[in-house]
Amino acid sequence: MNNVQVGNRGEEIALHFLSKKGYKILEKNFRLRIGEIDIIASKEGCIVFAEVKSRRNLDFGYPCEAVDFRKRKKILLVAKSYIHMKRLYNVDCRFDIIEVYLGEKKVNHIEGAFCE
């Protein structure tokens, strides 16, 4: 499995995981010129912008460690654009990271992983 396949599989697993937890999936791979957000979902009136990081093993560190300052900044910019496009000005939002460990068949959902 190459890196693109690992990422795609991880996103499929994350979508299924969130759906089972009662989240409504609003967007998958929401892309603008400035960047992309893997999953945009909602639950109990809160919009969740989720970054999915998948690993086959921990040779290159924990998945969440790949969401560095530069990546968080891009996610924030895309999220602000999404909020503006959809006119969601008075809605709570949150930024999550979903770690998918393919070798262990495990998902770790880090709610509120970072903020604006």
Score class of each variant (00 low, 15 high):
Met1Asp: 10
Asn2Arg: 01
Val6Gly: 01
Gly7Ser: 06
Gly10Arg: 03
Glu11Gln: 10
Glu11Ile: 03
Glu11Thr: 02
Ala14Glu: 01
His16Cys: 03
Phe17Cys: 07
Leu18Tyr: 01
Leu18Met: 14
Leu18Arg: 06
Leu18Lys: 09
Lys20Tyr: 01
Lys20Asn: 12
Lys21Val: 00
Lys21Gly: 01
Tyr23Ser: 09
Leu26Pro: 01
Leu26Phe: 01
Asn29Glu: 15
Phe30Arg: 12
Arg33Tyr: 02
Glu36Leu: 10
Ile37Leu: 12
Asp38Val: 07
Asp38Pro: 07
Ile40Asn: 10
Ile40His: 07
Ile40Asp: 08
Gly45Gln: 04
Cys46Glu: 14
Cys46Gly: 01
Cys46Met: 15
Ile47Ala: 10
Ile47His: 08
Ile47Gln: 08
Ala50Met: 12
Glu51Ser: 14
Glu51Tyr: 01
Val52Trp: 02
Lys53Gln: 11
Lys53Ile: 03
Ser54Pro: 01
Arg55Met: 06
Arg56Gly: 03
Arg56His: 00
Arg56Lys: 11
Asn57His: 08
Leu58Gln: 07
Asp59His: 01
Phe60Glu: 11
Phe60Tyr: 09
Gly61Met: 03
Gly61Tyr: 05
Tyr62Arg: 15
Tyr62Val: 09
Pro63Leu: 10
Pro63Cys: 15
Pro63Asp: 14
Cys64Tyr: 05
Cys64Asn: 05
Ala66Ser: 15
Ala66Gln: 10
Ala66Trp: 02
Ala66Asn: 05
Lys71Asp: 07
Arg72His: 10
Lys73Phe: 06
Lys74Met: 14
Ile75Gly: 14
Ile75Val: 15
Leu76Ile: 15
Leu77His: 05
Lys80His: 04
Lys80Gly: 12
Ser81Thr: 12
Ile83Pro: 02
Ile83Phe: 02
His84Cys: 07
His84Pro: 00
Met85Arg: 14
Leu88Phe: 02
Tyr89Met: 09
Val91His: 02
Arg94Asn: 12
Arg94Val: 12
Arg94Lys: 13
Phe95Tyr: 15
Ile97Cys: 15
Ile98Ser: 04
Leu102Trp: 00
Gly103Val: 03
Asn108Glu: 11
Asn108Ser: 12
Asn108Tyr: 00
Glu111Thr: 13
Ala113Val: 04
Ala113Thr: 01
